[in-house]
């Protein structure tokens, strides 16, 4: 019953979030602010993780391909496939669920317990729309760019590690990351990214918006938001993969 209560309340909140804004210019400014806050603010952590993960995947691929029958360009190929299909869209989204999700839930939760949301409501502002819509739109706009950077840096990390460890040559790696490339896989990856961005922001906002009590509950909302968002990302990853890749 609790599950249905939350699902129902979540969709009712979304209905309010997507109702007509009071003033488009104010929302526009908020979207730009959120793009900076949610997107640019996450660039450093995404970059660091991507470079290192690209390097690790390259080493693991090289370690696994010990058979002389497997060409060495397979190292670059494997790194590209892992980064593009799974690591960048899904694992980076999980990391963003932790960073951005907890940030959103605690920010909105703190606004709730300090009556800032009540203040918005009493002014005649649709608080759900004003606080949540810019975050959802900003994340859906900026996360694909963030993930594109992550993909690029992951491949760069793989290149640096592959060359420096002697796992493959520069030529083999570059040939590998171009080999058998199918552009529609990017479409699959970026569709996942946009869906995950929506989940991260809307679910975290939901938990923040319905926080009751004080500082302790804000912390609990934040934790709950991260856990539920992570589970939802994994479920939707499975659904989207089945929809796009199943033969």
């Amino acid at each position: 019953m609790t599950l249905f209560f939350h699902i129902g309340r979540y969709f009712m909140l979304l209905f309010r979030v997507f109702s007509k804004p009071e003033k488009f210019s104010v929302y526009g400014r908020q979207i730009i602010y959120e793009i900076y806050s949610l997107g640019i603010g996450s660039l450093s952590i995404v970059s660091i993780i991507s470079v290192f993960m690209g390097g690790v995947i390259t080493i693991q691929a090289a370690f696994g391909f010990s058979s002389p029958w497997i060409p060495l360009y397979a190292v670059g190929f494997t790194t590209r496939e892992s980064m593009l299909l799974e690591f960048c869209p899904t694992i980076v989204s999980l990391i963003l669920a932790g960073k951005v999700g907890s940030n959103i839930a605690s920010e909105i939760g703190a606004m709730r317990v300090t009556e800032q949301i009540d203040a918005l409501e009493i002014m005649g502002v649709n608080s759900a729309g004003y606080l949540i819509l810019p975050k959802i739109l900003a994340a859906m706009l900026i996360n694909p760019f963030l993930i594109a950077i992550s993909m690029f840096l992951g491949l760069v990390g793989g290149y640096l590690m592959g060359i420096s460890s002697g796992a493959c040559t520069s030529y083999e790696y570059i040939f590998g990351i171009q080999a058998f490339f199918e552009p529609w896989k990017l479409y699959y990856s970026f569709t996942k990214v946009v869906v995950f961005a929506f989940l991260i922001t809307s679910v975290a906002s939901y938990f923040g918006y319905f926080t009751n009590g004080g500082a302790l509950e804000v912390g609990r909302s934040s934790t709950r938001a991260v856990v539920i968002t992570s589970i939802l990302i994994l479920i939707f990853n499975l659904i989207l993969t089945q929809l796009f890749l199943a033969r």
Binding site: K23, T114, E115, Q116, D118, A119, M123, G124, V125
Partner: peptide
């Protein structure tokens, strides 16, 4: 509600905004 002003017990000022932005908020909106 646009005709209502409210002073909350703890102020309920928007933490992320300066004093000027806080006071300007209803003017920006309406």
């Amino acid at each position: 509600r646009k005709e209502i002003g409210m002073l909350f017990q703890a102020g309920a000022l928007f933490d992320s905004q300066t004093l000027e932005e806080n006071v300007r908020f209803p003017l920006d909106m309406f």
